[in-house]
Design a protein around this nucleic acid. Sequence first.
DNA 1: GGACTTTATAAAGCCCCTTTCCAAACCCCT
DNA 2: AGGGGTTTGGAAAGGGGCTTTATAAAGTCC
Lengths: 415, 415
Amino acid sequence: MKRTSRDIRTANRYEVLRQIIAESPTSRQELAAATGLSLATVATLVGELLDLGMITEVGFEDSAGGRPRGLVAVNASGGALIGVDIAETYVHVELFDLGLNVLARAEEDVRPGESLPEQVVGHVVTAVGSVVTQAGIEGARVLGVGVSVPGQVDRATGVSEYAPNWDWHDVPLLDLLTEHIAYPLYLDNPLRASAVAELWFGAARGRGNAVVVNLGTGVGAGLVLGGGLHRGVSNSAGEWGHTTMVLDGRLCRCGNHGCVETYIGARGIMLNLRELSPDSPLLHAEDQTATIDALARGVAADDPVARRVVHETARYLGAGVADLVNLFNPEIVVLSSWVARTLGEPLLHEVREAVTRHALPRPLAATEVVLSPIPTDPVCLGAATFALEGALQTVGQKNGKRAAPVRSRTTTPSS
Amino acid sequence: MKRTSRDIRTANRYEVLRQIIAESPTSRQELAAATGLSLATVATLVGELLDLGMITEVGFEDSAGGRPRGLVAVNASGGALIGVDIAETYVHVELFDLGLNVLARAEEDVRPGESLPEQVVGHVVTAVGSVVTQAGIEGARVLGVGVSVPGQVDRATGVSEYAPNWDWHDVPLLDLLTEHIAYPLYLDNPLRASAVAELWFGAARGRGNAVVVNLGTGVGAGLVLGGGLHRGVSNSAGEWGHTTMVLDGRLCRCGNHGCVETYIGARGIMLNLRELSPDSPLLHAEDQTATIDALARGVAADDPVARRVVHETARYLGAGVADLVNLFNPEIVVLSSWVARTLGEPLLHEVREAVTRHALPRPLAATEVVLSPIPTDPVCLGAATFALEGALQTVGQKNGKRAAPVRSRTTTPSS
DNA sequence: GGACTTTATAAAGCCCCTTTCCAAACCCCT
DNA sequence: AGGGGTTTGGAAAGGGGCTTTATAAAGTCC
């Protein structure tokens, strides 16, 4: 709540490391220019990161006639981060080096019946164990594990307050995981995970205001406001999927009608298709992934039905994104998650047109709409980033409370 | 953009003064408890404000057995602030003392034809002159004038980039005003003015996250996020009125269909009434104020048509507010501006029910929906607050730039 | 009147960032 | 080969902020 000068330090530390990860190797001068900090501050922060072993000096670069610039780069082997993406049907785990390259990957299927927390935890534990052995990392080098679970999450206590897909209520997920996983754990939800991924490594890097729109089975928006993630008062900001877009429209699983999600979530898109062409060969019964894949292929092959579905979907999505643009006035809107990746450019193109039609001129002029440039699972990456942030935060902590000052007050020593 | 430790000081200064204005007189201890600052910091900030003449020491209060607490209070006569609310049909100006009590008030009508900037500026100048002479204030004590003008505003340059009602484009309003008004001027729009008013003196005081919904002829949302006003990247955040709520719904003046404003703005409410009862006696042709007043009286008299109109309006508004609750996860939603004030409790009651139906349980649980408790024109008050913020900010400024260090580089002094 | 409390201010300490100064490293020219 | 000139990087000094600790001031209670 209260701001202190330490927060400034933490933010700057993030900023510098972000920059180094983005552009490795790099010089202190470049960092100072990129961050707007003074050379001296950059030097001390770089020193800190060197001491931590997160970066290393990797040589020199010619300067314009003077002393050569020292170069620093991410010390990829300086530690490992694990990102866990828990979803309705799978648990996806990736292990990253400090350059945020994927070193190992594991996936566990979650069967429709397996809705007990213990079962899900079991999958996570197995997959985490798997990536650690795959990568041949010694445990001590794992800096932390970020865990993303759908729904509402209390990150302070590590409780999954509500997970709609399994109807979890107040499951102490982090406690359950701690029993089996010795690394530092960080819990949050996929919305915020992918937003943080964009903020650190994706299209929102360096932007103070951004909206990361997640298009998957569920729909949501990660909000980057004033340079940081906006969480709201109870860490549930960004629930955009249940915004009313068509009053008295389609029934949503949340119980309301006309929610955004029912038009542009994977199930909504399938419905768009079904309404347009009830027995289209593109439809794959209940298989969302297969249907969206088929749609993407259809668009590529110029199938008129597929094109119309994308057009229709973009009409809804564009109107929704325009609303976000008007409301937040962001620098950039990033379309993320698997539906956006699968439908790709054709969807983006149509969305841009729809946004241009709907948004007000001034906010529109300040905004660009892009696809997420992150090639891997953004939720895993984002979850791992939570772990990275956690590791960086502890740097600032007091590195050990001093022993109690044993000062005899009433008695003088022997004498 | 960049945060510095000075920002912390400014924020704390705001916080302390806010608290003093809210609760005058008060003691340093109370301030420390309320703000979470240390006694020492509070003492220095109080000292600063005393030096500025914005507050005064007003006596003592018994403590629990020790030295009595010194009490401080706003020094009402320590300065005056002027708030200017420029709207489509009027210019409203109020002069406040430092306790933010209205000392004088002036109103000028803006005729339908008078759309030239010079004409509007003329009205503002007349009204400002009027309140100053009415209050019998000497010019030197006016700390500043806040000006609110509808539409998009560049507050740094003082340009009204776009005002929809008069079709202004890039009018250098502040420059025009500076020619006739000698006091420091601050420009912004009514959305943000009323948000700041709530933040300082209204229902959002002390809240880190709040949404101020403006219900007038136009509709918008002032966003308080992380303790401060969210402006977006080009100072146009909060344009909520043109959010699509009914895809392909009513035509809006912005050119789109189904905007929130067309259902819950004053004109939209009139339309709701007309659709329900085309020749209702409540309808007053084009007079928005008269119609909304009639509606309010109708509801009070249990007129079934009026009640249904309010119910219908609340259905739209509730859905919209629920969207904001889901998206921002605020602590409080404040309904402000004249339509909200006129329809009052009956509207609020229906809105609360609608919000409860539409919002997700977790964000809903953290939020309350209230009417603005500000008794006067919140836009004038907010505009005056901009002036107050401005006056406080200059405190921190370097109190005089040093003369340029004339250091001869190439020649040594005489010798 | 002394002891204990409570308040207010002054002093010292810590954190953070920037500016300034200086040594080190390198180029180029003489 | 040896000086300038330039650039880098680090150390020191300085300025702003906040907090904790010490001290002075003002009262109450016994």
